[in-house]
């Protein structure tokens, strides 16, 4: 118990109350849907190529498939991104880097695992140097295939958008 005359408690309470009010406000329907709509159409993946699926990821950002139509713009700095695309195999050395990159990204953040290697190791499932992304990161969407078609990448983005707009993924708490 803190003494009631202690000023810091008043300040603490005020701040807590303000946060609560803000959380209540952004979780209210019109603002919440606006917010989720905004997040769903500004998914920026960090440019972090882990393995060969990067070739198909490149193709999906290229003219034929042009995933930028979904507001999906590959970006360089992890500080400005909210999607981590695991493009294929995650080796032990790379897994460390993946965790660093993930930790640097601001909330809310999402992970998409692309390719059989990114789900269960694919053809390399019994390799001594392969890590399954789902063991180290919270994966939201899996794309099977080796490599997946760029259409499947687009499909995964649409599925992630759908899930965000259903309001299951993003929560604001005090």
């Amino acid at each position: 118990m803190v003494c009631a005359l202690d000023g810091s408690m008043w300040v603490g309470n005020l701040e807590k109350a303000a946060r609560k009010a803000a959380a209540w406000l952004v979780n209210k329907t019109p603002i919440r849907s606006l917010r989720e709509w905004g997040i769903a159409f500004s998914l920026w993946p960090v440019h972090f190529t882990t393995a060969c699926c990067g070739a198909e990821f490149g193709a999906s950002a290229a003219p034929k498939f042009d995933t930028e139509r979904f507001g999906f713009l590959p970006f360089i700095a992890s500080r400005q991104c909210n999607v981590l695309f695991i493009e294929g195999t995650l080796s032990k050395k790379m897994a460390e880097a993946a965790i660093w990159v993930y930790e640097q990204m601001p909330d809310p953040k999402f992970v998409i695992a692309m390719g059989a290697c990114g789900i269960d190791g694919g053809i390399f499932w019994n390799s001594y140097n392969v890590v399954r992304p789902k063991d180290i990161l919270p994966v939201h969407v899996y794309i099977p295939g080796c490599p997946p078609r760029p259409e499947a990448v687009a499909q995964a983005i649409i599925m992630l958008q759908r899930k965000i707009r259903e309001g299951e993924l993003v929560t604001y708490e005090v």
Binding site: I119, H140, V141
Partner: peptide, 11 residues
């Protein structure tokens, strides 16, 4: 070929 999944088990 353009399918993605939300969970590991359903694959």
């Amino acid at each position: 070929h353009d399918v993605a999944f939300y969970t590991f088990e359903e694959q």
